[in-house]
Design a protein around this nucleic acid. Structure first.
Lengths: 149, 149
DNA sequence: ACTATCTAGTTCGACATAGAACCAAAGAGG
DNA sequence: CCTCTTTGGTTCTATGTCGAACTAGATAGT
């Protein structure tokens, strides 16, 4: 095995680990959400609350790291459920703006409670320790990958 | 915000970071693989080489953390491409055994080269440092989540 | 030995997501 | 102004993944 391949194995192993953790945590999240609400939908609601609503879909898409078409689809689901409202952007004929509805805010509040409880049962002090320990490194890694893709 | 919610925000933020890193790294991997070969397929070939082939699909599925039906689907793709062979398990009438073909081994060798090159361009010494630094913690986290789901 | 339970694999239906092609509006450069 | 390029959003198609239901073979408990 060449030098490059040794490094590749290391890198690949690392990202494999990341992938599995992501999958397991997503599964936990999915199970603690009501039927028909995907983690990505919850994630969008969360983003709208934390970063403020009234943003165009394309901005949300880039923040969530998904493509525009995926965002179109997800927003349609959220709109059908009455959690958001999408209005044309008065300042840009092409654009739209996404607003949370009261129902959406209430739903998100309740979901937070359920999710908190689910993770509270699973995440122990050791795990919390790990998260705090490696959180900074993960953030740095994410930023780097994001900027160099 | 309650205590629980504060912790939830922390936990959720952590897994969000993990999710984004996973997505970005998967995208890099996907782009360095030939058309029609998904990262998960590559992952299966890799697993067969590293852990040895001649294993039943259900074992591979549990190792890769995907469901049986997903594995059935992925194996069909790999089989259609001639990278693996699936034979009935002589010791278990229900079971099958998965074998790598020569073509599959060659393909994987070549893919490793491409993937190594792609990641070599992107991953710098800082990133490698991060990986080595937090690899142990990630492993521990993965095992914990795996055992407590 | 017989039944009940479990396990391996498949099939079906649903859904999130990506990529490509497309339209319409905005912006830039002459 | 007028074109060229860029940008926001949608539509279409393909694919990976999951959950649930199902079949067939294995295993355990009495």
């Amino acid at each position: 095995m060449s030098e490059d391949n040794i490094m590749a194995a290391e890198v690949f192993g690392f990202f494999t680990e990341i992938g599995i953790i992501n999958q397991l945590s997503t599964a936990i999240l999915a199970k603690s959400l009501p039927e028909g609400v995907h983690p990505s939908h919850f994630s969008i609601l969360n983003h709208l609350v934390r970063m403020g609503d009234g943003k165009p879909p394309v901005r949300i898409a880039s923040a969530m790291q998904v493509t525009k078409n995926t965002m179109t689809h997800s927003l349609k689901v959220l709109q059908d459920r009455g959690y958001i409202m999408v209005a044309p952007d008065p300042a840009d004929g092409r654009g739209k703006l996404v607003y949370l509805t009261d129902s959406g805010r209430r739903f998100r509040e309740q979901a937070i409670v359920n999710v908190s409880e689910a993770f509270g049962h699973i995440i122990g002090p050791d795990q919390l320790g790990i998260m705090r320990r490696i959180g900074g490194d993960l953030l740095q890694m994410r930023k780097y990958l994001d900027e160099n893709r």
